[in-house]
Design a protein around this nucleic acid. Sequence first.
RNA 1: CGGGGAGUAGUUCAGAUGGCUAGAACGCUGCGUUUGGGACGCAGAGGCCGCAGGUUCAAGUCCUGUCUCCCCGACCA
Length: 498
Amino acid sequence: MNKFNTHNKGITKREDDYSQWYLDIIEKADLAENSSVRGCMVIRPYGYAIWENIQKNLNKMIRNSGAKNAYFPLFIPKSFFSREASHVKGFAKECAIVTHYRLKESENGNGVDVDPEAKLEEELIVRPTSETIIYDTFSRWVTSWRDLPLKINQWANVVRWERRTRPFLRTAEFLWQEGHTVHMTHEESLKEAIDRMEMYVQFAREFLALDVYYGKKSQMEKFAGAVDTYGIEALMQDGKALQFGTSHDLGQNFSHSFNIKFVDKDGVSKYPWQTSWGVSTRMMGALIMAHSDDSGLVLPPKIAPIKVVIVPISRSENRDLVMNYANEIFEILKGGYDRDEIVLDDRDYLSPGAKFNEWEKKGVPVRIEIGSKEVESGNALVVRRDSGEKVLFGKDVLFDEVGNILNDIQRVLFERSCEDLRSKTYRVESYDELKRVFEEGNGFVSAHWCGDSECELKIKDELSVTTRCLPFGREGKKGRCVCCGKECDEEWLFAKAY
RNA sequence: CGGGGAGUAGUUCAGAUGGCUAGAACGCUGCGUUUGGGACGCAGAGGCCGCAGGUUCAAGUCCUGUCUCCCCGACCA
């Protein structure tokens, strides 16, 4: 319960308790709730509609990259999983395992028990990621250079038995897409890994209105089984970093362990080069945290399930008049939106204030208020969720102006995110400066690092700060490692991470 | 895996030293009045007090066991 009595419309203020604020937004905006299964959440219809919008738009980009969607089993034979040594090591501690296939009545007569007779010959892992089951398949699909490149994507659920979970950010089961590609050369697979990372960056900026950093992860932070991992890092309002997309250069690690081979043009049998890449429902966590405020969720219009809500405000004596006019406004706008994207809120058992609050909590970008004043003047009062600004428009221009405002909100949110990222990124030269940044607040810190994991570990132990990535496309200037002082030319981004 | 807390109505909780015929707020249902920033009145529905034992004339309340959930930390491709 709220011990500070600081609730604003039932939502804890960010400055009082950021993490409670996040949980409040999820509850009050009807995004998700805890289920009866520990660590697994129920994604409610409104939250799922956001995920569907993410899927719809990202799926288009994935298909444009040449990947085709397919679906692979939820279960992975245990032996597959252990074929790639570092892969199994990375996931071993959080696997759910199926050992039996049948129940029987309990000895004491109430309930059911696992039937010990029904033990599986080979135990099955519930996929925490699908490299192994997919590459087992790929070993049959790939035989010739003509089969390459092979680009496959799947939308699926995966399970990682996390000790500690938080809605969307880390759940025991989550939804994601995972792309898997196979190439003839390393040059080509590396390009694919980087292209997909850049695709995620473009998606974040264009649809989520989120500016991000992106680049190579350190060897310690990379994916278990990858040669190199590339990551996308966003900044949350509390100054912590959230990694919400990764793309892996798998080299030939998996093609060797899964015996994927192709006969090249020269007649020689060769191991191909692979990538995998994914984003998950964790991205929803980034979306929620990045833009929202103390009144509730704020959504970029391109991702918002409901873009416009019309709220009629009537007295009993003019109800018909107001409702007719509200309907007229609805008809004017309706052609510009899908059926679910525009709502006429005609629930007459709720006061206007209650409706305003509800739609604000849900982050609907544009609200249109229709009352007796609007009926008389032939206008509509348009209210923006991002700024609260209210503007009157005549019926004749309303359709265009609402469209303009939606575009403008998308733009403003992105600019705000860019500014936020820029203003909370610091450049430091020494360990003391690094330390001071995280004593005074959070954010991204750009600093020289020699690449030695000993330095990385020391910083992690002492400051709870980790390397996020070596950002792309930056010329390395000579400098000294913030930790050990050794000369080096790589400037890495550091942050406290979710 | 370590530390803490909690299981009582749909939800959040109150129920000192056992006396309960188990309450409140919000939510829910019906009727009526309302509607420019979370409306109000009246009437209702809703509980095996996590589960299993025990102590007692009497157990949400005490004892034992057990299960579950939440929070903090460690871990987290």
